[in-house]
């Protein structure tokens, strides 16, 4: 941790960045996002396995952008989000300094976004066994039972949109669900409204989601909404192979190739 604190303080000292986005202990002694603007303030920075909020979400927030150029404390999930944001032209080289944290807790420095990409090629997204089993179980349900499963799972959702707010890739300033002329998706959190909302969100993240689980951790009702995203990641890995955020290759689902082997796309 000393390494991280020293590095962050020196960046602020040299005015290379104006804010460090990191984790600190809040008043209730739980880790939360903190925004440090002075070298002395860096003493508050910490990192352990309770730091599960994905800080990359702050890179696109206007309130944080106003603070100046950021350095960001970036364990694996944050690194993945950063690469995806770069691939989607939301971040440009020089916009930020990445203070990587490797899986052993050591500080990582990167010379470029490409360097993060190549680091991530050794740390691929792997859907955990327990989720693979769950997805398999759901997929094997007869249609009616599967529908009932989702209805029951999503029923408590009251559409607080914390899942969306916590997701670094849900950076749209105007979400489809807020379009009301025409209204694509019912706003009310009834059966149809909830199903359409979650299916729409999952589809908008298909091929982009980096499996950080921020949506799931954010949900105040503990709804395992990330099951949908994980299932799509699994499908995409099976269809297209190597899944994960990449700068050097086009996005899996939102790119177009005139030489595509499927004729319908041409």
């Amino acid at each position: 941790m000393n390494e991280l604190i020293k590095k962050a303080a020196s960046l602020l000292e040299a005015n290379e960045v104006q804010v460090v986005i990191g984790y600190g202990l809040g008043s209730a002694k739980r880790p939360q996002a903190i925004f440090v603007t002075t070298p002395a303030g860096c003493e508050q920075l910490m990192f352990d396995n309770r730091c599960i909020q994905n800080l990359a979400v702050y890179l696109t927030k206007q309130e944080i952008r106003k603070l100046g150029k950021p350095a960001i404390v970036a364990p694996l999930p944050v690194l993945r989000s950063i690469v995806q944001l770069v691939a989607e032209q939301q971040l440009t080289e020089g916009d930020l300094v990445v203070l990587g944290i490797d899986p052993d807790g050591k500080l990582l420095e990167f010379s470029s976004f490409k360097a993060i990409e190549s680091f991530l090629s050794d740390h691929k997204i792997v859907i955990e066994e327990k989720y693979l089993k769950k997805i398999e179980e759901i997929k094997n349900m007869p249609v009616g039972e599967r529908f009932a499963y989702w209805v029951e799972l999503l029923e408590p959702c009251f559409k607080c949109y914390a899942c969306r707010a916590a997701c670094p890739l849900c950076y749209c300033t105007r979400c489809t669900i807020e379009n009301n002329q025409p209204q694509w998706i019912p706003v009310a959190s009834h059966l149809q409204g909830n199903l359409e909302w979650h299916v729409m969100r999952a589809m908008h993240l298909a091929g982009r989601c980096t499996d950080c689980e921020a949506c799931y951790h954010a949900c105040p009702l503990g709804i395992p909404i990330h099951l949908l995203n994980k299932s799509l990641i699994q499908d995409l890995s099976e269809s297209f192979g190597d899944y994960g955020p990449k700068i050097s290759e086009p996005n899996m689902l939102s790119s177009f190739d005139p030489d595509d082997k499927e004729s319908f796309i041409r």
Binding site: F35, F158, C160
Partner: peptide, 17 residues
């Protein structure tokens, strides 16, 4: 106000619960 809400994500959780 800005300091205490810096980390706020602008969701509906606090109001809905």
């Amino acid at each position: 106000w800005a300091e205490k809400s810096r980390a706020c994500l602008g969701c509906g959780t606090c109001a809905y619960i």
